[in-house]
Design a protein around this nucleic acid. Structure first.
Lengths: 68, 68
DNA sequence: TTAAAATGGAAAGCAGACTTTACATTTTTA
DNA sequence: TAAAAATGTAAAGTCTGCTTTCCATTTTAA
């Protein structure tokens, strides 16, 4: 799964650390998501989407062959 | 987090086992989601939403105090 | 109303999401 | 250009999502 996290975060002019604080997760979690090391839990995805005022689908890009 | 899985599945007149097969997960996974034993991964949430032709937000109901 | 089908749910095991700690590299600023 | 700030990334640990197996309970159908 791809995502537009880094792009959206930079549009808003905020740092990984600030986003992490706002979402109450670690900075490493944000970095790991931005660099595709893993996918967010659905709860974190909701919190990210809500923080940016967007839908999950606008931020996280599901690809047909993504397996559970 | 709440969800409308059971309601939507029954609207479509399909069984847990059929939904499980369509999504390529186990029947127990569907039952566990419907009964709130755990939340889906974001990949499974995407697959469920796509299967029903709905958005994740229409099926899974995030509540403000849900923590990661 | 009994047999079959559907659902509920537990246990053990594996993989992935997230944490903290720690250090290296890159980018920004003075 | 040197110091400071921001980001990359790894390791070990915990917790949760999902699996398979198994059995009990509820619902449907003959």
């Amino acid at each position: 799964m791809n995502n537009r996290l880094e792009e959206i975060r930079k549009q808003r002019g905020i740092k990984q650390e600030e986003l992490a604080a706002a979402l109450e997760v670690s900075r490493q979690t944000i970095g790991s998501l931005e660099n595709g090391r893993y996918n967010p839990s659905i709860l974190l995805a909701f919190r990210i989407a809500r923080f940016f005022g967007m839908s999950i689908e606008e931020i996280f890009i599901y690809e047909e062959d993504d397996r559970v």
